[in-house]
């Protein structure tokens, strides 16, 4: 996605923020359009966010939660896509646990496809909503120093944010134990740190990622206790960032694992609630852009 396109979506989303705060949020921009939320992975906030976004724009929204295991043993992903395609939706919003699955699906349908997260690859609307959150608070993205901390290896949020923030001229750092830093990450345009205190120096924004606790007891990280000691965000480590550094988290949070509860709930520093609010606005902008005026393939 080019810088101009990003700015266009963010500008449009800015307007929807006001719509969403009004008592009457209805719009008929997408009246008569059909949006299918096709989720192969359980999700609360992303699915709800897309559902609200579609409904507030007047579209007919259908939610489908399909177990990924059924895709593996029965009807293929492509069959599912083509079946849905035959019902003429205007947009498919797809979340899948395998990297690249959304792209595969998009090649087989002729409606717009929005990637709502595919494996460890990308989560573009998360990056957009993060950008909108930062821009509204700081007025810009250009020149900011942003640290993304935690399970970089398995994070689609990290990858999408790295691409977007680099495109918009921010300086991106990633901070993680070496077992959670994928090889060649520097080639994506970031500086990698294994010492959180050093990595946070001079940062304007600290983005925490969820540690996949189900993966914790493997050999990536020895224990939650040790992870929090060295990589959990608390005030002591945060003191290394700029005094007015802001904290973000895509959710769901593991309090006491990657982030201290008190820090997460600090209304002066934490943007976590705003991120959720911006999510709906950004997804409205994305749906409006893709299905409102012209029809085009996305992502």
């Amino acid at each position: 996605m080019a810088g101009g396109e990003i700015v266009e979506i963010l500008d449009r989303a800015d307007g929807y923020v006001e719509t969403n705060r009004a008592a009457s949020k209805g719009s008929d921009l997408l009246a008569g359009r059909t949006v299918i939320n096709l989720f192969f992975e359980t999700s609360t906030r992303t699915r709800t966010s897309f559902e609200l976004a579609g409904k507030r724009l007047g579209a007919d929204v259908i939610n489908m939660e399909v177990a990924w295991s059924s895709i593996k043993k029965g009807e293929t992903l492509i069959d599912t896509a083509m079946t849905l395609n035959a019902m003429h939706p205007d947009a498919l919003v797809v979340r899948a646990p395998d990297s690249g699955a959304v792209k595969l699906l998009s090649e087989k349908v002729n409606c717009a496809v929005v990637n709502a997260g595919d494996g460890s690859h990308e989560h573009p609307t998360q990056a957009l909503l993060d950008a909108l959150t930062i821009r509204r608070r700081r007025g810009r993205l250009d020149g900011l120093r942003v640290a993304i901390c935690g399970d970089i290896a398995h994070s689609r949020v990290a990858r999408s944010n790295i691409h977007l923030l680099n495109t918009m001229g921010a300086e991106v750092r990633v901070i993680a134990p070496p077992t959670l830093l994928p090889s060649g990450i520097e080639k994506l345009g970031v500086t990698a740190f294994t010492d959180m205190r050093k990595g946070l120096e001079g940062c304007d924004i600290v983005m925490m990622l969820r540690l996949q606790i189900e993966r914790m007891q493997g050999s990536f990280v020895p224990s939650i206790r040790e992870y929090f000691h060295f990589y959990g965000l608390d005030y002591e480590k945060l003191a290394n960032a700029k005094p007015d550094a802001l904290i973000m988290h895509p959710g769901p949070m593991n309090r006491g694992v990657e982030i201290d509860s008190v820090v997460a709930d600090d209304i002066d520093r934490s943007l976590i609630r705003q991120q959720v609010e911006m999510g709906v606005a950004v997804r409205m902008a994305v749906l409006a852009k893709l299905t409102g005026e012209e029809r085009s393939e996305a992502q």
């Binding site: 007891q217 493997g218 050999s219 020895p222 224990s223 206790r225 040790e226 000691h229 060295f230």
Partner: peptide, 15 residues
């Protein structure tokens, strides 16, 4: 190096 020297999970090397 690993819990219970079982060769599976690494111990709390930092702590």
């Amino acid at each position: 190096l690993t819990r219970n020297c079982a060769g599976e999970q690494i111990t709390e090397i930092g702590l």
